[in-house]
Nucleic acid binder design. Sequence first.
DNA 1: ATGAAAGCGCTAACAA
DNA 2: TTGTTAGCGCTTTCAT
Lengths: 379, 379
Amino acid sequence: MTRGARRGGSSGAPRSVDVARVAGVSQKTVSRVFNDEPYVSADVRRRVLEAADELGYRLNNAARALASGRTRSIGVVTLGTALYGPASLIMGVERAVRDTGYALRVVNTMEGDPAGVAPAVHSLLDQGVDGIVISEPIDDGRDGDLAARLDVDVPVLVLGAPPFSTPRSLVAGVDADVMARTATEYLLDLGHVTVHHLAGPQRWFAARDRAQGWRSALVGNGRAVPPVIEGDWSAASGYAAGRRLASDAGVTAVFTANDDMAIGLIRALTEAGRRVPEDVSVVGFDDIPVAAYVTPPLTTIRQPFDVVAQEGIKRLVHIIENPQADPLPASEPPVDLILRASTGPPPTRPPRDRGRRIAHRPDAGGPAPPAQATAPAQN
Amino acid sequence: MTRGARRGGSSGAPRSVDVARVAGVSQKTVSRVFNDEPYVSADVRRRVLEAADELGYRLNNAARALASGRTRSIGVVTLGTALYGPASLIMGVERAVRDTGYALRVVNTMEGDPAGVAPAVHSLLDQGVDGIVISEPIDDGRDGDLAARLDVDVPVLVLGAPPFSTPRSLVAGVDADVMARTATEYLLDLGHVTVHHLAGPQRWFAARDRAQGWRSALVGNGRAVPPVIEGDWSAASGYAAGRRLASDAGVTAVFTANDDMAIGLIRALTEAGRRVPEDVSVVGFDDIPVAAYVTPPLTTIRQPFDVVAQEGIKRLVHIIENPQADPLPASEPPVDLILRASTGPPPTRPPRDRGRRIAHRPDAGGPAPPAQATAPAQN
DNA sequence: ATGAAAGCGCTAACAA
DNA sequence: TTGTTAGCGCTTTCAT
C-alpha cells in the first residue's frame, strides 16, 4: 500500500512524523494519541491509529525517555539464586510490574559479593529506572543504613527486609516475626517443652527475622531458648544439622527456616533412628511444591509471594507517579500454617491444650494429594 | 567543592557538557572517554574521569540509545513460573548477560496465555532491545514457525526448544533426546523390560522432546512403548499418575520428566505398597536441591543450566555485535545422570548386563549428604 | 481541539 | 589526538 511513505533517513523504522503525514495531522497529535492525552477528537484518533497500524509504527522508547526524563521502567535487584522463596518473589514481581505497564529491568548482585547491593543498584540507576525493587537483601556488613549509603534518587521498595529509612522508600512483605511465632507457638501448643531452630544464614535479613520471631515466641512463653543452628538454606546443611541434633534426646521439635533444610534434617533424623513426627516434630517454611509429597508430608509456613509482590509494586508505582501524595498504606498479607504429618505431640508427655486456636490434626496431609489444612495466623 | 558547576536547566543531573567544561575539553571527548574509544590521551582521560567523578556524572542511557540506535540491552521472555528448571535457566541468563555488560529486560508470557510469546516479544521490541531470549517456549498451537510469525528484527536465542528457522536466530540447550535416552537406556540396562514415561505437559517443547527421546530409546532397543502419561510438572500430578501406575504389575521402571512429579509418583507407589526401587525404579529429571534427601534419594538427570545460559548468551551477543560474521558454533553441554537410590534391577528377573558404561551402584546416594555418583552421558 | 518550535543528552560523521 | 556540527524521535511549552 502506501508503504513507501518516506521512511526516515537511516534506520528505516517509521516515526511519528510519518504517521502524522499519513494521517494528515501534526506530529504532536500523534504523540497525543499514543499518550492517551485528552483533547483528541475521536475521528482524528481513529485516523492516527489507522495510519500507525498501516505503517507498522511503534513508539521509540529511548526518545520518549530522553524527552520526558522518565523511562517507565522499574529495576529489580535479585540474588541470582533459584531458591524457591526468592525465585517466587521475583516471578511475583514480574507479573505485578507487567500489570502496571512498566518495564522490568533485572540485575543480580553477584552471589556473596562483599560489595552488596550498591553496585547493582547503581547499574540500574545508570539504566535510568523510575523505581527500584530490592528483593531479599542480605547484610553486607557495613556500617550505616543501606538506604543512606545507596544515595538513590528514585523510590525504593525492599522486599523481605527490615525497615529501611529513606524518604520515598518502602518495605513490603509478611512480618517474619508473625510467621516464626506461628510456627513456634504451634509446636509449643502441641506440648513440646521447647523448640529448636535451624536458621538460614544470618547475613540474610529474612533468616535473622525468622530467628528473632522464634526466639521471642519462646521467651514470651517462658521457655528455654536453645542455641540456634545456622544452615545455608540447602538440604545438605539441614542434613548436617540433623546429625548433630539427632544425638540430643532433648530435641523434640524443630522449626526450620526453609523446607529444603527441613527435608535434609528429617532425612538425618530418620537415619539416626529418630522418627518424625513420633520422636521429633519438624515445621518447615515456604511450602515448596514437593512439601506435601515427601515423607512425612511437611508441616510448613506459607507466605503469599504473589500478594506481597503485587502490593509492594502497587505502592511503589504510586509513589513514582504521585511523588507528593501520601504513600499507600501497607496491608498485612495472610500467613498460613499448613498442617501436615511432620508434627505431633512430643514422645513423653501428652500434649497439653493451652486453649489456642491451632489444633493438631494427626492425620493431616498424610496421603491425600493436596491435603492442606490451613490455619490463619493470629495477627 | 566545585559542586555548583552549573547543572543543566531542568533535571539537575550533570550532563556530559558539564563534565567537558570542568575538564576543559570538548563534549565529544567526554563521550570518547565513556565509550572507551581510541585516541584519547591518558592525561585527558584522567581529567575527564576526575571531572565526572566530581560532578557525580552518569551517562544518560536514553540519550545514548536514541543517538546510537542501540540499547545495549537484551530482553528475555519467561514463563513466569517458579519451577526449578525455568527459574534456574533465568538465573543463569541474568548472570551471563551481566557479564557481557548488557542490561536485562524481562517480561513473562501470561501463564497459559493462548496468544503465546508474541505479545511478550513485541513488548520487548517496543522497549528497544538489541536481542531477545525466549526461555522454554510452549507451543501456542498455531501454524507456522514461531520465528517467522514473530517478525523480529533482532537476533533471537531460544532456550530449550526445537529448531527455529530464522536468519539470526539461535537455539541453545542440551539435547533433550540425549538426556531422555540416557535415562531410559540406563533403566533398560538394569534389566527392565520396558520403561514407562511420566511426561510433562505436551504443550512444552521440552516435555515433548523428553518424551521423544524416551520413545526412540525404547524403539531403538526393540522394546514395547507403553502409553505416555502426561502430568503438569507438579508433584500432585505425579501422585495421580502413581496411583494409576501402581495397579499395573507390568510397571517396573518409570522415567519422569521432572523431579517434582517423580517425588509425587514415588509417594503414590509407596502408599500403594509398591516399593521403590525394589518393585519399581524411578528416574527423575532436573536434580532439584532436595532430590538427594527425599526417600529414597532420587536418581535423576541433571543439565548444566548455567553453562547452557552462558553459552547461549555468548552466541547471541556475538551475533548482535557482529551481524555479518558467522555465528559462533554451539557446543554440546555435558549431561549427568546422577545415580542415587530410586533405581535398581527389576523385581523378577536379574539385571542383564548389556555391556554399557553405566553401572548401577546399589548403595549410591543412600545416606551420605551429597552422595552423587555421576555418569557422563554418551554423546 | 490542534499545531509549531525548541530542546532532552547523547553519538555520528566529518573536519582540523 | 581533539573539536564541530547535525541530528536520533520524542515530549514540552506555548500559540492558536
